[in-house]
Design a protein around this nucleic acid. Structure first.
Lengths: 247, 247
DNA sequence: TCAACGCAAGTGTGATCACAAATCAAAAAT
DNA sequence: ATTTTTGATTTGTGATCACACTTGCGTTGA
């Protein structure tokens, strides 16, 4: 494999220039909708229209409809028989279903990561712990957005270390599906008790630091179960209150 | 909720008429590509073009490009930086990764199904066993297609009983991803030893019949591991042979 | 002889249009 | 007053086109 003169001179240039990367409009639309979904910016049951989103994102309908199609196959959105799409509604069954799947898959991912994370990577998520405390100290009220973002970064930094190109997309799909639910729980959390979310994350980091896969899985299960059981109780309470109003 | 006169007369009609269902072209293209992928009609590393598929399926490019986009997000296809799409190549790592994920998720699904399948449903998959024997008795050579179809029906009949709307799409995604690999294994199987595939299915049915979740999971793991380890050995043998030819 | 250039065919992406189906509101009928 | 009908608007779907980028092959030049 001999290199020609121009190839060699090109190598010199390549060493100084960063690849520009060509992101399509569709990709940006898709990412934007994903972000909104995971962050819970859309409410469950809300219906979305192609033209409406295209206007909001200032593009034509084409990139939007393809992005919507992709999100539908991931079950992040739902295609009604009317051919309109909506954010899937929350039901008790779905909540339990999602939690069970997340415990199963994310639990496996963190168990794998526990034996593969380098000290370097551990220190990264340890740093995130500090960032969390910082945010909590300042106590800005509208930091719910930041909180979910930080939470996401923390978890996926771990999952990325599991070394499975198959599991990670599945976890992303699960987050996409539970995003609209979680938002409700987070809001309720910051209102109600100040149960320190960081405490659970600290337990996870401690387990990972000593490569204890079982403990890490256990701590993770506790972490992700919390908002789900909270939401579950809330839903049941709401249902009870409603049936009491008109028996 | 009071019904009007015409609504009630409509109900009478509705009881006799089956809903016709409005399937879009895109849906048909998507289903067709799925079928081809799971059945292993596409070879790993094969590149696909929108216009080429559109010609083959006798439609315009529009439904095809959206179907391709959906398959790419499911990791059933791969988008190269060149913006061309191909069916993902097989590597040892990917093989192990897929098998681990399938054991995890399909194992959980069958364990759930074990406690939920009705005798009626058990008898259905028992009937499939008979169909399998029948096919094997006739010994038609080109029944590989029928074999993979029957295998798929058998497994998904079980998974459908797990009662999880979240797990099933994930399993479908996994089958989509391992489809192109499995085909190679199936072919090699029918050539090589006559290891009765039905034997493993029989074990599964037996375990499900007595609602033994652990045994069902174990039998399933043996069933799906077989083609994977077979393929794994084949790949390693090929690699060894190649490196021997030019040391 | 082989690298470099240039042209042509092929390909994905996005925009726009036409059409059918759904939705909604006002008008008409009971 | 309630139901039905009618018509206008909205919406998803598929086709077609324009554009930019890639690829492959033949030509040119050293």
């Amino acid at each position: 494999m001999q290199k020609t003169a121009t190839e060699k001179s090109n190598d010199v240039i390549a060493a100084q220039l960063a690849p520009v990367g060509r992101e399509t409009v569709q990709d940006r639309v898709y990412s934007e909708l994903r972000r909104a979904l995971i962050g819970g910016l859309f409410e469950p049951n809300q219906t979305l229209t192609i033209r409406g989103l295209a206007d909001a994102l200032v593009t034509s309908t084409m990139p939007v409809r393809e992005a919507l199609g992709r999100l539908i196959t991931e079950k992040a959105l739902e295609a009604l028989p009317n051919r309109s799409v909506r954010v899937p509604p929350i039901t008790l069954d779905r909540l339990d279903d999602l939690l069970r799947a997340r415990i199963l898959i994310e639990g496996e991912a963190i168990a794998l990561a526990a034996t593969r994370m380098t000290p370097r990577q551990i220190s990264v998520i340890e740093g995130m712990l500090g960032e969390w405390d910082e945010m909590r100290a300042l106590k800005h009220k509208k930091d719910v957005d930041h909180e979910v973002t930080l939470n996401q970064s923390f978890h996926f930094e771990i999952y990325r270390s599991c070394g499975s190109a198959v599991l990670i997309p599945m976890i992303e799909s699960l987050w996409l599906q539970s995003g609209p639910c979680i938002r409700v729980a987070i809001y309720a959390f910051s209102e109600a008790g100040e149960v320190d979310t960081a405490h659970y994350h600290r337990r996870i980091v401690a387990a990972l630091a000593v490569q204890d896969a079982a403990a890490a899985r256990e701590a993770l299960v506790a972490d992700i179960s919390r908002p789900f059981t909270f939401l579950r109780n809330k839903l049941q309470a709401d249902a009870a209150a409603k049936s009491e109003n008109r028996p």
